[in-house]
């Protein structure tokens, strides 16, 4: 499917989702749906680096919070100086640029590290940034920041509806970007890095450059997801904005959905995000992380390649890659494949 057609279909689906939410006649749906859509963006963004390229980033919260605090800083500036408030789509672009730059910088400093070391470095980024924000009085410091949002916006009406619509569109944009990457030279290059970085180098893949592109795009999308958050929550506090659950959730959603395809994080985020919203209302919000934990354990045992892996296995369209990986890990000498000598034009191994 070509990208414009894909985009058109996604927009139609998004319009249908928005229409259905209005038809449901309950504004809480927008409130909860915003969070689910936000996680669609975060999980998709995480997957560009973590799934396609194999670099596990524990710093989702850092990029998300960067976007959110860019908005707070701009909000403070506009209210202090009595200038016209900047509309949210512009704030999102700014948040994306800020997070993208930090993503690039983090990548430049840490991408020479691999595996667990890279993960620890990204974790450290969140801690460093939180410390900076806590000590930055202008954006509220440790007390947090209040954002006064208008009750309504023109055309859409209710403000929460407006925020939901924006996040819905961002989710469409993020999925389109992820899908574009997947089918591009960049995507294949990232896949070689994930599968074997040394072999990628030997094949002439510019590994550092591709990884930097991936961290930048991934970080930028996370920042864009964070930018409208102060308007959604209206009281922003460093503790919760840098919360570890953003990192855990976005990783878990991608893993549960499946990391090799753009649709995986979407499925994971919708399933897990909706479950969490339901649990928040019916039981308590503290149950959320428990749900994540249980589901992760379940998927690691039953479907290590996520829901997508299960579907593939069921359809038998491709051989199960878990088996393939295991076999390469053992690397045992195997009996020669049966072939009649002299029949093939080249040497047969």
């Amino acid at each position: 499917m070509r990208t414009p057609i894909f985009l058109l279909i996604s927009l139609l689906i998004a319009a249908a989702v928005f229409g259905a939410a209005i038809a449901a006649g309950n504004d809480y749906i927008f409130f909860a749906g915003y969070v689910v859509m936000q996680y669609v963006v975060l999980a998709t963004a995480w997957n560009i680096l973590g799934g396609y390229c194999g670099y596990v980033n524990f710093g989702t919260a850092a990029f998300f919070a960067l976007g959110a605090y860019s908005t707070v800083a701009i909000y403070k500036y506009t209210t202090n100086n009595d200038t016209f408030p900047i509309p949210i789509p512009v704030l999102m672009l700014i948040g994306g640029v800020v997070s993208g730059i930090v993503g690039f910088g983090m990548g430049y400093l840490t991408l020479r590290l691999r595996g667990a070391f890279f993960a620890i470095a990204t974790l450290a980024l969140a801690v460093v940034l939180e410390t900076l924000v806590v000590n930055w009085e202008y954006v509220g410091g440790s007390r947090g920041a209040y954002i006064l949002r208008p009750e309504t916006v023109p055309i859409v009406g209710n403000y929460v509806r407006y925020l939901f619509l924006i996040m819905l569109l961002l989710a469409v944009a993020a999925l389109t970007v992820a899908r574009l990457i997947e089918h591009s030279r960049l995507g294949y290059g990232l896949a070689t890095i994930r599968d074997d970085e040394l072999a990628a180098e030997a094949s002439g893949v510019p590994t550092l450059r591709l990884k930097l592109i991936a961290t930048t795009i991934s970080g930028a999308l996370m920042g864009m997801a964070g930018a409208p958050f102060p308007y959604y929550i209206s009281y922003l506090q460093p503790d919760s904005t840098f919360g570890f659950d953003y990192a855990v959730n976005s990783i878990a959603m991608a893993l549960i959905g499946g990391t090799t395809n753009w649709i995986g994080p979407l499925i994971g985020a919708v399933v897990l995000g909706t479950l969490q919203q339901i649990a928040t209302v019916t039981i308590s919000s503290a149950v959320n992380l428990l749900i994540v934990g249980l589901l992760l354990v379940f998927f690691v045992i039953v479907a290590p390649n996520g829901i997508l892996g299960l579907v593939h296995k069921y359809l038998r369209r491709k051989p199960d890659d878990f088996v393939g990986r295991r076999r390469i890990g053992i690397d045992a000498p195997e009996a020669a494949p049966q072939s009649v000598p002299g029949t093939a034009p080249g040497p047969s191994l």
């Binding site: 294949y188 896949a191 070689t192 994930r194 599968d195 074997d196 040394l198 072999a199 990628a200 030997a202 090799t260 890659d321 393939g324 990986r325 390469i328 690397d331």
Partner: peptide
Amino acid sequence: LVPEGRRLFPKL
């Protein structure tokens, strides 16, 4: 370079 241990991209 054909690297030691083959180093293919197993999931491709």
